[in-house]
Amino acid sequence: MDSPAPGPELLGTRLRLLLGLLEADVAAVYSDLGLAEVRPRYTPVLRTLARRGPSSIQDLAAAVGVTHSAASQTVAHLVKDGLTVVGPGRDGRQRITSLTPKAESLLPALDAEWEATTAAATAFEAELSFPLSELIGEALEALRRRPMRRRIADAAPHLIPGRN
Rank of each mutant, 00 (worst) to 15 (best):
M1N: 06
M1T: 08
A5L: 08
G7I: 02
P8T: 12
E9Y: 02
L11H: 12
T13E: 14
R14V: 08
R14I: 08
R14D: 06
R14H: 12
L15M: 15
L15P: 00
L18N: 09
G20H: 05
L21S: 10
L21I: 07
E23L: 15
D25A: 12
D25N: 13
A27G: 10
Y30K: 01
G34F: 07
L35I: 04
E37I: 10
E37L: 13
E37F: 00
E37H: 05
R41C: 11
Y42I: 00
T43I: 05
V45N: 00
V45R: 01
V45K: 01
R47F: 00
L49R: 02
R51C: 07
R51Q: 14
P54F: 05
S56A: 15
I57Y: 03
Q58P: 00
L60S: 06
L60E: 05
L60F: 08
A61P: 08
A63K: 03
A63L: 05
V64T: 06
V64S: 10
V64M: 10
G65V: 10
T67E: 11
H68S: 08
H68P: 01
S69V: 11
A70I: 04
T74M: 11
V75K: 05
V75W: 05
H77R: 14
L78M: 13
L78H: 06
V79C: 03
V79P: 00
K80R: 15
K80C: 01
D81S: 14
G82R: 03
T84V: 15
T84W: 03
V85L: 12
P88I: 04
D91C: 02
D91G: 10
G92K: 13
G92R: 14
G92F: 08
R93H: 14
R93D: 13
Q94P: 00
R95A: 12
I96E: 09
I96F: 07
I96C: 09
S98T: 07
S98N: 02
S98W: 01
L99V: 05
T100G: 09
A103D: 01
S105R: 14
L106Y: 06
L107H: 02
P108Q: 10
P108C: 06
A109P: 00
L110F: 04
E113R: 06
E113T: 03
W114S: 08
A116E: 09
A116W: 04
A116Q: 07
A116F: 04
T118G: 03
A119S: 12
A119R: 14
A121L: 15
T122N: 00
F124S: 05
F124V: 03
F124L: 15
F124W: 13
E127N: 07
E127S: 13
L128F: 05
S129F: 01
L132M: 11
E134V: 10
E134M: 09
L135F: 07
L135G: 04
L135Q: 12
I136P: 01
I136V: 15
G137L: 09
A139N: 03
A139P: 00
L140S: 06
L143S: 11
L143C: 13
L143T: 14
R144G: 08
R144Q: 10
R146M: 04
P147S: 09
M148W: 14
R151G: 05
R151F: 01
I152K: 08
A153K: 04
A155S: 15
H158F: 13
L159S: 05
L159Y: 09
I160R: 14
P161H: 09
R163V: 08
N164H: 11
N164C: 04
